[in-house]
Computed example of a mutant assay.
Amino acid sequence: MKIKYNKLVRDMIPDLIKKSGRQYAVRVLDDASYQDALVEKIIEEIRDFHESGNEEELADIYEALDCLVDHMDYEPMHIDYLRMKKKEARGSFKERYFLVEVEEPDEA
């Protein structure tokens, strides 16, 4: 029985499948497809974390984000700088504020 996955997997997964005696098929993604697959992987892992609350799922999010930062040739320290800059200007999420509504002035 073949099971279709069609998703990005960690680098050692094909070897682990092979060592288990099973057959598999993989393809290496081009740059654009890899970027899309990383974003999809991040979304998948966020959903998994949302459902389970498992810190291993959180680690998977970090790994996929790290790969995306690397693939985009972004400097991790610069990403952290941008995060800190935004935190200084707008704060964090630690106060748990959930914005319900804002009354805007009527335009004349």
Rank of each mutant, 00 (worst) to 15 (best):
I3L: 04
K4S: 06
Y5I: 01
K7P: 07
K7G: 06
D11V: 09
D11R: 08
D11W: 04
D11H: 09
M12W: 04
M12D: 15
I13C: 08
I13A: 12
P14N: 06
P14G: 06
P14I: 07
L16H: 10
I17P: 01
I17K: 09
K18Y: 05
K19E: 15
S20I: 14
G21I: 13
Q23I: 06
Q23L: 04
Q23E: 06
Y24E: 03
Y24H: 10
Y24T: 08
A25Q: 12
R27E: 00
R27N: 05
V28W: 03
D30S: 12
D30C: 11
A32W: 01
A32Q: 13
S33L: 13
Y34K: 10
Q35Y: 08
D36H: 10
A37C: 01
K41G: 06
K41W: 06
I42T: 06
E44N: 12
I46C: 13
I46R: 04
R47E: 08
D48P: 04
F49R: 14
S52W: 04
S52V: 02
E55K: 09
E55F: 04
E56K: 15
E57Y: 10
L58S: 12
A59Y: 00
A59R: 12
D60M: 02
D60C: 01
D60R: 10
I61G: 09
Y62N: 04
Y62Q: 12
E63V: 05
E63D: 14
E63R: 13
E63S: 14
E63H: 13
E63P: 01
L65Y: 12
L65R: 14
D66L: 11
C67W: 05
C67F: 11
V69C: 13
V69H: 10
D70A: 05
H71S: 13
M72D: 05
D73T: 05
E75D: 15
E75A: 07
P76A: 08
P76K: 14
M77Y: 10
M77Q: 13
H78S: 06
H78F: 02
I79C: 14
D80E: 03
Y81E: 08
Y81F: 12
L82Q: 08
L82V: 00
R83A: 00
K85Y: 07
K86I: 04
K86W: 08
K86H: 10
K87D: 10
K87F: 02
E88G: 10
A89M: 07
A89R: 03
R90L: 08
G91C: 15
G91F: 12
F93A: 05
F93M: 09
K94N: 13
E95M: 09
Y97R: 12
F98P: 01
F98H: 01
F98R: 09
L99Q: 04
L99C: 03
E101N: 13
V102S: 00
V102H: 02
V102M: 07
V102C: 10
E103C: 00
E104K: 13
E104P: 00
P105K: 14
E107S: 04
E107L: 08
A108T: 00
